[in-house]
Structures are given as C-alpha cells and as structure tokens.
Design a protein around this nucleic acid. Sequence first.
DNA 1: CATGAATGAGCGTTCATTCAT
DNA 2: AATGAATGAACGCTCATTCAT
Lengths: 228, 228, 228, 228
Amino acid sequence: MCPVVPGGGYPRPVTTTAVRPLRADAARNRALIVDAARRLFAERGLDVTLHDVAEAAGVGVGTVYRRFPDKDALLAGLVTAKYETLVELAERAAARPSGREALREYLLGAMELRASDRSLSTAVMRAAPQTEQALALRARLSEVVGGVVERAHAEHALREGFTADDVPAVTSMIGSIADRTRGESPDAWRRYGLLIADAVCPPAGELPPLVGEPLPPPTSGTCAAPRP
Amino acid sequence: MCPVVPGGGYPRPVTTTAVRPLRADAARNRALIVDAARRLFAERGLDVTLHDVAEAAGVGVGTVYRRFPDKDALLAGLVTAKYETLVELAERAAARPSGREALREYLLGAMELRASDRSLSTAVMRAAPQTEQALALRARLSEVVGGVVERAHAEHALREGFTADDVPAVTSMIGSIADRTRGESPDAWRRYGLLIADAVCPPAGELPPLVGEPLPPPTSGTCAAPRP
Amino acid sequence: MCPVVPGGGYPRPVTTTAVRPLRADAARNRALIVDAARRLFAERGLDVTLHDVAEAAGVGVGTVYRRFPDKDALLAGLVTAKYETLVELAERAAARPSGREALREYLLGAMELRASDRSLSTAVMRAAPQTEQALALRARLSEVVGGVVERAHAEHALREGFTADDVPAVTSMIGSIADRTRGESPDAWRRYGLLIADAVCPPAGELPPLVGEPLPPPTSGTCAAPRP
Amino acid sequence: MCPVVPGGGYPRPVTTTAVRPLRADAARNRALIVDAARRLFAERGLDVTLHDVAEAAGVGVGTVYRRFPDKDALLAGLVTAKYETLVELAERAAARPSGREALREYLLGAMELRASDRSLSTAVMRAAPQTEQALALRARLSEVVGGVVERAHAEHALREGFTADDVPAVTSMIGSIADRTRGESPDAWRRYGLLIADAVCPPAGELPPLVGEPLPPPTSGTCAAPRP
DNA sequence: CATGAATGAGCGTTCATTCAT
DNA sequence: AATGAATGAACGCTCATTCAT
C-alpha cells in the first residue's frame, strides 16, 4: 500500500499542490539511497558498506543514517520492498483458474526475483521483519500462496506433503545457485528452477507418483524471515 | 575415515637434490591448521579470524600465512580437503551394482557433507582451486561421478538431460538451505534433499517421465569452484 | 523565583531607528532553548546533543545555531543564566546584618546551586563569558560578594587571606564532588560543603586561629569562567 | 609489586640471559604507549582518542588495542599505576611518628598527585578497578590511610567525624580545582589544598573546635573508584 | 622456519555544524 | 526568521596482512 521504497506509487498529494515542499529533496535522496542500495546489494551481496551506498547514491553517510537507523534497517527496507513485489506476483498468479499453473507461475516468478538480487537470499534470512508493514506483507503473502497451494493439492498437482512454508525454502535454494553463477552464466539457475518446480508441481499431463516421505514438518517459515 | 589433510599422500620429490627434512614439521603444521580451520569454519561460518584459526591450531598467525597466501587460499585448502572426502564417497558409491542406487547414495551423501559444514557452501563459491592437487581431485571426482551418472542414464533412472556437472549445483543448493536452518532445525535440509534426489533420480520402482527441457548446457563445473 | 532566561530584562534599544517586531519571537525561542538546555544539561551532563536540546525546546536545530554560534556559546548562555541566580542569592544574603552569616548563607547557597546542575562545573570551565551582559553580571556578583567578604573580615569571622575571588573556587570544588556522587548519594556533597564553609568562615562562636599563609594571590576570578 | 606500567622495576630475568628476546619491542612499545597516554591524559583530560595516543607513542592504533582491550582498560592501567604511587606515598607518610603530620603529608602529597594529572580525577571515577591488582592496591591504600587517620584521631588532631573514606573526596576536589587553573596558574590549587588540609587536620599547635555535625556517613569510598 | 607484535585501512555509527528550502 | 535535511570528520574498534625478531 505504502511502499517503503519510493519506487513507483508515491501517495500523490492529490488535493494540495505543495504539501511539503521541503520533502522534495529528502524524498529524492531517499530514493537515490534505496536505489543505490538495491543495486549494490544485488551486485555485491551483503558486505557493501554504507559508505559505499552513500557514495553510489551521491549523498553523505549521514544522510543514509538519517533515513535508516542502521544497516539492518536499510536491508529490512529492501526486503520489505521485495515482499511487496512477491505479494503482487502471488496475487497475479492466484488469478489463474488452474491451481497448478498458478503455483508454477508463482514459483518460477519468485525464483526469478531471488535470482536477480544477490543480497536477497541472505538478507531475508538476517533481517527480521521489523515493521508492521513487513509483517503484514508476509502474512498476506503466506495467505495468498497458501490458497494457491491448497488449490494445487486439490487438483492433485502437487507433491504430497508439500506446504506453503516450503516455498521460500525452495526459492531460497535457487537464489544460492544464482549467486554462484551470476557472473558466468546468469541464467544457469533456470535449469534447476525448472527441475525443482517439476519435482514439486509438474506441468499438466503427468503426475509424479514420487513417494515423498516428508521429514518432520519443517519449522514453519524457516526460510522466510526470522521471527522478530 | 576422512583424511582432513591432503598432505597424506604427497608426491615425494624423489629426484630433487635436497631432501628437506623440515618438510615433516611443515606438513604437520599444515595439517593442524587445516584441521582447526575446518572445525572453526564449520562451527562458526566464514567470519572466524585467522587468529582464531592459528590459536586453535596451536601455531602463530605467521605460520598460517606461510602455508596459505591469504584467507581465500585457506578456504581453498578446505575445499580441497572436502573434495578428497567426496572422491572417497563417490568411489564407494560407484561400487554398487545399481547405477541408480549408486547415484542416490552419492547425492545424499554429498548433501550430508555440505550440510555438516557451515562455511562450505560459501567457501566453494569464493575460492578457486589453486593447486594441481585440487584440480586433479576435481577431475577425478568428475570422472567417477560421470561414470555413475552414465550408468544411471543407461538404466533410465535419471532425469533426461541431467549431467554430472549438475551434481555440485544440486548439493550446493542443499548446503545453502542447511546454512539457513542449522540453528533451529539442523535436519530441515533433508526434506529438500529428498525432494531433489527424487526429482533427479527417483528411487527404484517409478521412473519420472518429467520432460526436462534442459536450458543452455550449464557452464561445466559451475557450482564446484570458480576457475582459477 | 529564578529567571532562567536572561532575556527578561533586556535593555531595550530605545534609540535605534527600527523597532524590530520579530524580536519577540526570537526572544521567546531563545528562552525556550536556554530552558530546555538547562534542564537537559542538568540531567544528563554535557553530552546531550544539540538536536536533543532543539527537540526539547520545540524548535529546529538551525534555530539553536541562530541564537548561539556553537555549543560552547550555548553553555556560556547557561552560565550567564546561572550568574543571574547567583547575583540574586548574593543580594539576598548581603541583606543580613551579620557579615559572617551573610557569607555562610551565600556560600552554602551557591554550593547548592552548583550541586544541582550536572553540567555547570564543567561548563563554567569551558565557556568564556562572551556577552557584555555576562561580564556585567560577573562584575556585579563580584561586587556584592566582595562587600560581604569585607564585612566578614571586619567581623574577624573569616579566615585570614580569604578573598572574594576564592569563593567561586570553593563552590566549584563542591560542584565536582556533587557530580561524582549524584547518582549514589545526591547529598554527599553537603558533608564537604560544611567542612569547607567551616574552614573558611566558621559559625558564630568560635574564631579559627588557623594560620593561613595564602599562597601566591590567586588569579582573580580563576574559577568563575575563563577570560574571553 | 608488579607494576602495570613498566616504569622502573621490571622483573629482571636474573637467572637467564635472554628469557624472551621477542618481548623487547613489545615492552618498549608498551612503555611508549603508557607514557604517551599518561602525558596526553594529563594534559588534555579524558577525551583524547586512542589514535592520538597511538600517534603520540609513535605506534599504530592496533598496537594500542593489542595491549589494552579498550580505552577504559588503558585508563584503568594508568589509574592502577597511580594507586601504586599513592600506596608508596601513604606508606612513607605513615612512617612518621606523629599521626597528624603523617596525615598532612599524605593529604598534601595526594593532592599534588591529583593536581598533576588532568585525567585522574575523572578517570578514577569512571574506571572501576578491574584487575585483582587494582583491588589489592586499593585495599592496601585504604588500610594504610585508615591507620594514619586513626592515629590522628587518637591525637585529637583530626576533625571529628572525618574518616579515611573522606580522603579521596577531598583530594578529588583539589583535582577539579587544578584542572581549572592548570593553564593560567598551575599552583593555584595549593591555596585550597592548604585550606582543606587545615580544616581537616590543622598543623600542630592549635586544635580547631569547629563543630562538625557530619552528615549521613558518606557512601564509603564514594570518591575512590566505583565498585566493580 | 616459526612466531606473534605491529600495522592501518576500514567498519558501523554519531553529531556539531552548514545551508537549501 | 525558522526549519530540518545534509554533511563528513571523527569516534572506538576489528582484523587481514606484514615483518622484525
């Protein structure tokens, strides 16, 4: 609703022409920071320094700290933004009539997202969702994906025992592969994405009778973000 | 069972003029260092300091630097040691009459190994194999696993298009999951290990008709270690 | 009772051409700032930030800097305010018929004042009196206390050699004790306040025959505030 | 016994010619650091940075941190060294036949010491004695001074109610005065040192009948160093 | 050779101060 | 005049790496 990252949909001050003219610079800088952070984190992983971010954004370090209390908060901001994208993705996928196709679409889309950002697979793990917004997004995502998973199960399109909580784990694995291969062949992960998607929820036509004896039900949300 | 130190079978420079009696101490120290490093990295991840390693090994930091030019080289050393274990594992598995079973045994064993060591999934990524020995080990591993894969294909037990080069990718993914879950539920990775093993090479009885349209043939060895 | 803001009795620039109606706001802000600063410094010592002060005062940091060139100037402002209280105290004490009692009253009162404000003993040290007003206040204080001291000497109630310039030194010492003990026993300083007051000017009844061989006459005003 | 600061009496390796030849540099550097620290702290108070210390000592910051885990530890080291001097001073004073004279000698000596080091009055307060050595020294000091105070009381040379725990408070006050006047007249504190010494324990000949109604017995050790 | 003392760039973070709005 | 966003030098501290012993 109200994106942490001022990417696209800033709440336009529709009624007043200039609600807070002072905010113009601030907002622009914030956007610069988030953009730079996103880019750097995506490229180089979690060990970029806030000095790097500041420099890349063309602002002073202090400005970064004005917007984000510390490095984790910045990461959390990025993660939150990414959750938003995931929610959108899930909702779009859920609109499909076939649960199977909905799930495959979401799975492959989520993998793609993870694969595009080096920091994400690690960041999601480290940064507990600290804002209500983040928690709400996670809950919403869980809800939508849960629905899709249920529908796919009802269609017998899904490997037995697979739950909505397995989804982040599965995309996280793909993220790790992508991290290793981004340099040489940025699409290498697709091979494994497909492998896993097929294992979980094969494309229409064949149903895998694979006997999955699911181990102890996974710590729920294991690969999502840690509980606060 | 699993020789930590690859120094065991050093090719003696028989023909060289000087015998170098000091080599004994050096080798012992190298062994101590690698041993300590392995333990510490496995326990605490990549952010252990070289002082910690040196202390745990009972040597001075300088000695560590004498054996390994820098931290990455030490990591590479660990990776090398791990390759030795993998080779053993592969050879043992390859002894099975069934290619399918041989492959499953190796896959699950390799996953287990990755899961047991916190630093490995990252280390493999960062450290290029720098010694002839490491390259030789990798070649040998590739050879043995390649044989097993071929046999499994011959038995039609393996997903079409799957190659020996996919094996490290697949185990690497499991390593990343294990890293994320080790704290809370150290066995959580098994769920996904099984999922993937089944997808690749299902247990005897059913054959996966899953149509795998392999994407661009993976950069060979992609998920092993980066090229030097 | 004790006007925090020295702005109260500003000498109006009656003769100047422009009346400057804005002065009202400015003065009010200055008052708010000094008030907040006093409170915060007294509570938390010198390491409060100017942002804290500004926030507590309900103004922006910029406003603080408009009124006081830098942090030290603000401290100087506080010291000035404190001087006003001291002048009042001295005048009230000087009204007593007995010089001895007047001096003791002033001494103990001044000590109490110092003891009640955490930042003051340090602030006095660092901030030179920068305004004419501050200098005027200091002169006035010196005058009043000088009178009292003289009367006490005339009554032979005061240790030989003791001068009005020793008074700030003596109260300053108590301030330092109070700073150190405020946390655990906020009244601990009284023990030493009494000790010193008795040494300087014992309560009526006994006259201290203590032979004080005053060392080199103290740099006058040494413990008040440094020269500009 | 074993000085924190390698000032004079290093335990000479009497029996072996070269016990630890490597330590030569280390010891020299440590001495340089402590010397520089002492000088800087004495001159500029507690807010010197460890970079300053390192630079003044001619070593890198890392070296300072190698010797002292953090800034407080360095301070604690200095404080410990100062305690040693105080113990020596107290023991020498205690050797006098007259308790009165012993106490005056110690008081004035301790004041002199405090007056000579700007950081000390603050440092003693902040740095809790962290080593057994420091605690032992403090205990020893307390013991010796306690004996002297008792003897002075027995001679009726001491203001009633004055205890050994008042001694650090009294010297601390002098330290604060000295801090304020060091720049302009470094001996100004003597005037007040004498005043206080006389108030506490007047020179032989006259006994002050000053009615001291001691306030609640002071938190013991209030102005010494905080309890660990 | 082995040692561990020394180094110093760099980290995350703070805050007095400036300046565009 | 007032604001508060922006700045960046500096802080305490770490640790990979070097080099005198």
